[in-house]
């Protein structure tokens, strides 16, 4: 179980978790490598890598088109694409690579930590607010909080917080529980030698596959809900 001490360090007066920084860096490097090597030799007749990237762009743009008006998709396309790529890789990282150093976990899914998922959630919320002000102006943007009637204001404000929390905690819950169950099954596998190993390893593999699926679904859901929250802010009700 993940009971080891959490390794932290101080930098510029801020506290950093080693696991999050290392895992985040790994995800970042993988993402950059994938994008860099897939985007060589861009031509009219797409090659393998270009085909993959185009498919991914079409996919995330498709998510965006589901809720954002078609003429505004292009301004959020890059955000949706980067968000999906980062979250997808983050969700998958912990399934295949978990490193423990001096008893403290240093590599796992970044998204199995609520501070990371809530960071992305906060980013989406801020982008939604910013886009709302940018497109509608301050007056209309804040007037939306008073709809359908003025007494709705506390609920509207409360809704912003619940959106922020549910968006971040949903993905955290799924990924965290997936990783924890992997650890539980692995603990079972190593508990009584070879006999439990034979039983537990197939279960572990099945759960790993399922978690990979869940990780993809959660990245998709996160991007979908992000676009929904953004679309609520950029449209006049």
């Amino acid at each position: 179980m993940n009971d080891g001490p959490v390794s932290t360090f101080q930098f510029l007066g801020l506290t950093f978790s080693t696991a999050n920084v290392v895992s985040g860096t790994i995800v970042f490097l993988i993402a950059v490598a994938v994008i860099f090597f897939a985007s060589r030799h861009i031509s009219m007749k797409p090659s393998k890598g270009q085909n993959f990237l185009e498919w991914l762009i079409e996919f995330t743009n498709g998510i965006l088109k589901g809720s954002i008006p078609a003429d505004q998709v292009s301004s959020f396309g890059l955000y949706g694409f980067t968000l999906f790529l980062f979250l997808f890789l983050s969700n998958q990282l912990g399934l295949f690579l978990q490193l423990t150093f001096h008893g403290a976990t240093i590599v796992r899914s970044p998204t199995s930590d609520p501070i990371v998922t809530l960071t992305f959630s906060l980013m989406t919320m801020m982008l939604a607010q910013f886009s709302g002000v940018q497109r509608l102006g301050y007056k209309k943007h804040f007037a939306n909080y008073l709809k359908p009637f003025v007494f709705w204001l506390p609920i509207s404000i409360f809704e912003e917080f619940t959106n922020f929390l549910t968006l971040g905690l949903r993905i955290f819950g799924v990924i965290f529980s997936g990783e924890m169950l992997l650890k539980v099954i692995w603990g079972l596998a190593t508990s009584h030698g070879i006999a439990t190993m034979i039983v537990a390893v197939p279960i572990e593999m099945i759960w790993q596959g399922f978690s990979a699926f869940l990780g993809a679904i959660q990245a998709f859901v996160f991007v979908t809900l992000s676009t929904v929250y953004i679309s609520q802010k950029i449209e006049e009700e």
């Binding site: 932290t8 930098f11 510029l12 801020l14 506290t15 950093f16 978790s17 999050n20 920084v21 985040g24 970044p110 930590d113 501070i115 990371v116 809530l118 960071t119 992305f120 906060l122």
Partner: peptide, 8 residues
């Protein structure tokens, strides 16, 4: 860990 937020 607000540092993590900033880092991400």
């Amino acid at each position: 860990y607000f540092g993590d937020s900033l880092f991400y």
